[in-house]
Design a protein around this nucleic acid. Structure first.
Lengths: 337, 337
DNA sequence: ATGAAAGCGCTAACAG
DNA sequence: CTGTTAGCGCTTTCAT
């Protein structure tokens, strides 16, 4: 026999019906211990592996959750890891579909649809809300790490505003009064982070010191922003800066240090993401950590709840971030003023 | 009707047999233009989408290639992108399975096996050769970016040695005579790169100047290596250094600059990978680029050839890398000696 | 060009 | 506890 063994093959070898083999293989109740053992032995001997396509076809449900992720994004890597764990725990499988420079979200989603996923988890999708809403009309859609305002789309995201508030609080506590923010433009979360920054400054009565610099998502954006930071006249110059994300903050650090500005002595810097970048000993960046584990657990739980028709809570679930204090923040240098 | 429309539904609506609808949907020959049009219209109206599971079950082949990748590795991202493109071109689909901190390669492979992939492409696998050989006994296995010596396993990898030779040649051409290498230890490719480094030095009659420093894959490893580089007494001190990869080189750059060593004036640095890291304007690292496009095309082509039983060439395909000269290399500073 | 019929490998009633 | 039966949605001979 050169084809892979089937249920029927196992049944014949074990001298039982295919139904019984099916029961045993699924670990379903309804087979004696003796039979179970014998069937398992035969299956093992034959190297039998159930054909998932046939299972899927026959079963009413696929127990498959589709995940769209950006193959470039380091943070998506963390999320995918968490999703695998969370899905396994509730007996679901994951179908991964990557967004690459040559393969857009729509393509990625199309692939998952024909895989008969029951629900979709989209990591930081760029697609317009209307498109997401269209999808959500067909199946449960959970968007992670992007705010989408549509009543049919579930959202799990970090409380970006709170993250920046924590960052500012930390800096103010250290004694900083002039704190700038290098923002992320139109990136997901950027608006919220700006809001958190501004709000926190006002709360501390430092609203008039607010200084927003255009930044972006990349190291280069950070480098540019840092250069404009350096051009500021001294009395107005901030002693600390919060940055949209770690990547951007890395660019900031690089330019500052290159210009002879000591961090954290002359300037404190706070990032966002707690990416591997931030954890590197020679970067050692104080940053706001997103809770990938909680986010992915919530995302999977919500998808499953939708599928089960369980009554669910808020459509949007906002996960609190956590400030990780490392080496790029310190009290301002009093000798400077 | 609340279930998804099936072939039968379309057939009934169009007043034809299911066989005919099948022919039309697959764009197979054997249906009149009229019928074709009518069936397509009905299918469209009903929003019919073929059930891939049923197709797969019925068809002898799945035309599915399984891909195991590390969700953390930036370079794997590039490779996955290339694989999608290459697979599409030859009419294959990709099934992605990620390796995460909680999900090892074996798990990732197991997932793909039950998806009935016809072949496996493994990106930089860590698994022992024996395991890979076991897999290869069941189905075509193509390993990318790691050297595996086993006659049943196809390999596509960069010519690591040639990469380092190019790097050394470049530095020698610039006038460097004392060139160190920060190595990657037991990482895939590290041994080859060491060999390329040593060989190139000897070829230039600089064998006695060879200086190998223990490094690694990460920024921290690079930082450590850079510190030991700084400790060398001046007469022996190299004027240039080749580094195992870009990540590690970043750490090197950081420590060097922090110690007041100007790059490239006081020290030239060459990385390996041409990762996004290297391309950042503030890093601007001279580096050896791996040809992800060619590698992925070869990998897919080889997998398909194995499946088709086509006669194939060498089991191991070595892709030449390309030196990308950027801003971290320059002639040595003659004033230093 | 079209249709009838036989499965692909498995699960889920339903009998016994 | 075990076997029989009837499909899941599709493709594929083989007739017509």
């Amino acid at each position: 026999m050169d084809r892979r063994p089937t249920l029927a093959d196992v049944a014949v070898q074990a001298g039982v019906s295919t139904a019984l083999v099916s029961i045993v293989m699924r670990e379903a109740p309804g087979a004696s211990a003796t039979t179970r053992e014998r069937v398992l032995a035969v299956a093992d001997e034959l190297g039998y592996r159930p054909d998932i396509r046939a299972q899927l076809l026959r079963r009413s449900r696929s127990r498959l959750i589709g995940v769209v992720f950006g193959v470039q994004h380091a943070f998506h890597g963390d999320l995918v890891g968490g999703l695998y764990t969370a899905a396994e725990r509730v007996g679901y499988e994951l179908a991964l579909s990557a967004v690459t420079p040559e393969r857009d979200e729509q393509r990625a989603v199309a692939g998952l649809l024909q895989d008969r996923c029951e629900a979709l988890v989209l990591l930081g999708p760029q697609a317009p809300t209307a498109y997401l809403a269209g999808l959500a009309a067909r199946m449960p859609v959970v968007v992670v790490a992007r705010a989408v305002r549509h009543r049919a789309v579930d959202v799990v995201r970090t409380d970006d505003a709170a993250g920046l508030e924590q960052a500012v609080d930390h800096l103010v506590e250290l004694g900083h009064r002039r704190i700038a923010h290098i923002d992320g433009g139109r990136a997901p979360g950027a608006a919220e982070r700006r809001r958190g920054y501004t709000g926190a400054l006002q709360r501390h009565g430092l609203g008039r010191n607010a200084l927003m610099l255009p930044g972006g998502l990349t190291e280069d954006d950070g480098a540019d922003a840092a250069r404009s930071l350096l051009e500021l006249s001294d009395p107005r110059a901030p002693t600390a800066v919060t940055v949209f994300n770690d990547r951007c903050a890395t660019g900031v650090l690089d330019v500052l240090r290159g210009a002879g500005v000591a961090v954290p002595r002359d300037m404190s810097v706070v990032g966002f993401d707690d990416s591997r970048l931030a954890r590197l000993s020679h970067v050692d960046l104080t940053t706001v950590a997103q809770d990938a584990t909680t986010m992915t657990e919530l995302a999977v739980a919500r998808a499953v709840a939708r599928l089960d028709g369980t009554v669910v809570g808020e459509r949007e679930q906002v996960v609190p971030p956590r400030l990780v204090v490392r080496g790029t923040t310190a009290p301002p240098d009093r000798s400077r003023g």
